[in-house]
Computed example of a mutant assay.
Amino acid sequence: QKIVERYPEEKDALYMIGTVYYHYLPDLEAAVRYFNKVIEMDPLHKTAYNILAYAYDRMGDFDKSIWAINQYISIAPDEANPYDSRADLYAFNGRIDQAIQSYQKALEIKPDFYASQLKLGNMYLFEREYAKAESSYKVVASSSEKEARAVGRLALSLVPSYQGKLQEALQILDAGIAGDGMEQFQEGQIDKHSAKSWIYLGKKEPELALREAELTKDIHDKVYPDDPTRLRPLYAYFLAESGRIAEAEELLREVRKDIEGDDPALMRHYWASLGAIELVKGNANSAVAHLERVQRESLSPGFFVNYLLAEAYLESGKLAEAVALLERMLSSYD
């Protein structure tokens, strides 16, 4: 802001302010205002158009989001990223066929653009074209990049999971964990143990879910020793689901002391887990209050928060709110 006050036409500073408003505060109207200022100064600013498109979409203006991303495409028609972004926007708005076409266009330009390959697999999964989904994920799992291979091994478990074949999904995850171990890539094991914890929770096996959640946290803390708090709120939720509510609440109190006033994103994890634990305790109204707070303060609260909020609405007698939220979740493929 100080740079812009002194140099009002410093577009890089304006762009950075826009990204802060978009990613961290969040304030979509302010972000849009700053990105449009950048574009007025530089009509060929690709990344400004890209984030502007996502901002318009999050504001509920699909037409403007497509206009912005098409501007990016007109500037860089031979790049894969704008087609990938356009596919995201179509997917977010339930337009799977158009999303598939746009992901395919991105891959036509850049065959090793694994983000598009992965999301293309997701679209096939939503369409219940399981063989095509598996084929897409296998491409990612055979990447020349270790990180992509790990993600591909995780994604392969989605095919049986989506069909309710949970034991098969667990076997694929175990094979993926072993593969990550052979490649000495512990980072890749974190999400796989996390996926196993959610599957066990869905199977009504909370002790096994807690075991996997603890493994997730322990590996994360080993790989990222400077970031020990990120997974603790979620671990507290699994403690509560296994009946250890007092321990869960004590852990959350410790987490709050460590992060309050320091990191708004981590505080949203705290409020989400607090709401989830209140739901486990049967305090639906309190759960609604905490989970709605996360929704207000986050551009993308995620499936976990939205699903638990819908459940809390149901348990607190707010049927209309639950139906509306679940309908929104069903219409967006993200």
Score class of each variant (00 low, 15 high):
180 D>Y: 10
166 L>D: 06
215 L>M: 06
157 S>G: 14
145 E>R: 04
240 A>I: 05
130 Y>C: 01
234 L>I: 13
159 V>K: 02
223 V>F: 02
174 D>G: 06
166 L>I: 01
240 A>G: 09
199 I>M: 05
216 T>N: 10
156 L>I: 09
118 L>Y: 01
175 A>F: 07
207 E>A: 15
236 A>G: 06
133 A>E: 05
240 A>Y: 06
207 E>I: 15
169 A>D: 03
170 L>P: 04
168 E>R: 05
202 G>K: 05
183 E>M: 15
138 K>T: 01
127 E>C: 05
224 Y>F: 15
141 A>T: 00
125 L>T: 01
171 Q>R: 12
129 E>V: 07
180 D>F: 10
189 Q>H: 06
214 E>V: 14
141 A>K: 00
164 G>M: 08
140 V>W: 00
136 S>H: 00
216 T>V: 03
183 E>S: 13
168 E>H: 08
182 M>H: 04
132 K>M: 01
253 R>L: 15
136 S>L: 00
151 V>F: 07
230 R>Q: 14
191 D>P: 02
249 E>Q: 13
201 L>T: 09
163 Q>S: 12
190 I>M: 03
170 L>M: 11
141 A>W: 04
208 L>R: 15
155 A>N: 01
250 E>H: 12
248 A>W: 09
205 E>H: 04
151 V>Q: 13
131 A>Q: 08
169 A>S: 12
180 D>P: 03
236 A>Q: 07
132 K>Y: 00
213 A>I: 05
174 D>E: 15
252 L>D: 08
233 P>W: 09
123 M>Q: 07
185 F>K: 03
224 Y>G: 01
163 Q>N: 10
237 Y>H: 06
135 S>Y: 04
155 A>M: 07
142 S>N: 14
214 E>K: 12
160 P>W: 10
198 W>F: 11
216 T>R: 11
117 Q>M: 09
200 Y>P: 04
171 Q>I: 10
134 E>N: 09
216 T>L: 06
172 I>V: 14
229 T>I: 14
202 G>C: 02
240 A>C: 04
253 R>G: 13
152 G>D: 05
249 E>L: 14
151 V>K: 11
118 L>M: 09
248 A>P: 07
209 A>D: 04
